[in-house]
């Protein structure tokens, strides 16, 4: 069974007296370990799809099943716990906590309280520290641990966000247009970094982009137009 399973998902938003039909019957599957791109023009529904995978939004119709559980069957507390346990997030605006240092930002998800099934629940403080340091090293920011987000460039901030998204060893990391606020060279580096992490840690990545160029790196591409799947294919993997 796929880790993510969308079954005929619709989403409508109220807009004044009318409604916006953001998703019009989306069905898609994502397997563990995949590096998935959701691509499509602005306003096509990418963020809406990612929000549903990320359990921060629920469908108006149809089912979103994450790891065998329909998200609409969970209450706010359970769904928050599921996010904490299994998901990591990367945002277009980086969304680091400005009053925390780079190190503290990456550490933050680890301090949110572990359930007994979480991989890091049994870690000692020492092990946590080593893991955070390791992640910072991996994203190339080993020397920036004590900096504040405001002292970093956009690319560096997004690297911190990647490290933070990976801190709890999630099954899946979601990235909504992670390169949209970066120049193309830095954007490429970020995509490459995510790809590296996908391969070294086996973490599933789902990221969206309105830039058709990024499609080459993905091994699973979902093209969305006007809230519908336009194309859904796997590229040849090695």
């Amino acid at each position: 069974m796929s880790f993510i399973d969308f079954q005929q998902v619709h989403k409508t938003y109220p807009l004044g007296k009318t409604e916006v039909h953001a998703l019009r019957g989306i069905s898609l599957q994502v397997d563990e370990g995949d590096f998935v791109t959701i691509s499509g023009p602005s306003g096509s529904g990418k963020s809406t799809i990612l929000n549903m995978i990320g359990c921060i939004d629920t469908p108006s119709q149809g089912d979103v099943i994450i790891d065998g559980v329909a998200t609409s069957s969970l209450n706010d507390q359970q769904i928050t716990h599921l996010r904490h346990q299994k998901l990591g997030f990367i945002f277009q605006n980086f969304n680091l906590i400005p009053v925390l240092s780079v190190y503290e930002n990456v550490e933050f998800p680890l301090l949110l309280g572990a359930g007994k099934n979480d991989p890091y629940a049994s870690w000692s403080a020492q092990e946590k520290r080593q893991w955070v340091q390791h992640l910072l090293q991996e994203v190339g920011l080993g020397d920036y641990a004590t900096r504040k987000p405001a002292e970093l460039s956009g690319g560096q901030r997004q690297r911190v966000a990647i490290a933070r998204a990976l801190a709890t060893k999630p099954v899946l990391v979601l990235a909504d247009e992670p390169t949209a606020n970066l120049d193309s060279k830095t954007g490429d580096q970020i995509i490459t970094l995510m790809r590296d992490m996908n391969q070294s840690l086996g973490t599933t990545f789902v990221f969206s982009s309105h830039d058709p160029q990024v499609l080459d790196v993905a091994d699973h591409v979902v093209k969305i137009i006007d809230g519908q799947v336009d194309a859904d294919y796997r590229t040849c993997t090695l």
Binding site: G54, Q77, T80, H81, R83, H84, F89, N95, I97, F108
Partner: peptide, 10 residues
């Protein structure tokens, strides 16, 4: 919103 996404409870 970001903290809530990362798993901070209400």
């Amino acid at each position: 919103g970001n903290m809530r996404a990362m798993g901070a409870q209400a």
